[in-house]
Measured scan of single mutants.
Amino acid sequence: IEEVKKIVSEIQSKQLTRITINGNTYQVNSPEELVEYVRKVFS
């Protein structure tokens, strides 16, 4: 979970619009959307 928080804060600070998780690239339009992807991947 700490690793996830680190990734999320990194993305928020860079305002990235794409994230790659487990080889899948997602278009991310908002931090909320990012959190949803993270929940799916780590749930």
Rank of each mutant, 00 (worst) to 15 (best):
V41A: 09
E10A: 08
Y37V: 15
V8Q: 03
Q27D: 09
K40Q: 11
V4C: 15
I1Y: 13
E3F: 14
Q12F: 14
V38P: 00
F42G: 02
E2R: 07
Y26N: 00
I11Y: 01
Y26W: 14
V38K: 00
P31G: 01
E33S: 02
Q15N: 10
E3L: 15
S13I: 12
L34G: 01
T20P: 00
I7Q: 03
I7A: 05
Q12T: 09
S13E: 13
K6H: 10
V38M: 10
S43M: 13
L34H: 00
Y26Q: 02
R18Q: 11
E33M: 07
N29P: 05
Q15L: 09
K6Q: 09
I1N: 12
S43V: 08
N24M: 14
Q15M: 08
N24D: 07
E32G: 06
L16D: 01
V4E: 08
K5R: 13
S30Q: 03
T17C: 11
I21P: 00
V28D: 12
Q27I: 12
N29H: 08
R18G: 04
R39D: 06
K6F: 10
V28N: 11
E10V: 10
N22C: 14
E33A: 07
V38E: 00
T20C: 12
N22Q: 07
K6L: 09
L34P: 00
K40P: 03
E36N: 06
T20F: 05
E10T: 07
S43R: 08
V8C: 09
Q15R: 13
N24E: 12
N24T: 14
N22T: 02
K5D: 15
S43W: 10
I21E: 00
S30R: 04
E2Q: 08
R39Y: 14
K6S: 09
F42Q: 03
I7D: 02
P31I: 08
V35E: 09
R39L: 15
E10R: 15
T20D: 03
I7G: 01
S30N: 05
R18E: 10
V35H: 01
R18P: 00
P31A: 06
R39E: 13
E10G: 03
F42W: 05
Q27W: 08
K40C: 15
S9C: 12
T20G: 00
N24C: 15
I21Q: 00
K14Q: 09
V28M: 15
S13R: 12
K14M: 10
V8F: 07
T17P: 02
Q15P: 02
K5S: 13
R39Q: 11
V4T: 04
T25D: 07
R39G: 04
Y26S: 01
I7K: 03
S9M: 14
T20Q: 06
K5T: 12
R18D: 02
I21R: 01
E3M: 13
I1D: 13
Q27M: 08
I21F: 07
E32D: 10
I7N: 02
P31H: 05
K40D: 10
K40T: 08
K40H: 10
L34I: 01
Q12A: 06
V28Y: 14
L34Y: 01
N22H: 09
R18T: 11
Y37W: 13
Q12R: 15
I19V: 06
Q27P: 01
V35G: 02
K40Y: 12
S13G: 07
T17A: 04
E32L: 06
V28H: 15
T25I: 11
I21H: 02
E32V: 04
Q27E: 13
F42Y: 11
S30I: 06
Q12N: 07
S30C: 07
E3I: 14
K14G: 07
E33K: 04
I11W: 02
S13P: 01
V8P: 02
Y37P: 00
N24K: 13
G23F: 04
R18F: 07
F42D: 02
V35T: 05
I7V: 07
E10Y: 11
L34D: 00
K40A: 10
F42V: 05
L16E: 03
I1C: 15
R18W: 09
K5C: 15
T20L: 05
V8E: 04
V28T: 15
T17G: 02
K5E: 15
R39F: 10
S9I: 12
Y37K: 11
Q27V: 15
T20E: 07
E36T: 03
E2K: 07
N29A: 10
N29Q: 08
N22G: 09
S9Q: 14
Y37S: 05
E10M: 13
E33N: 07
G23W: 08
T17Y: 05
K5V: 10
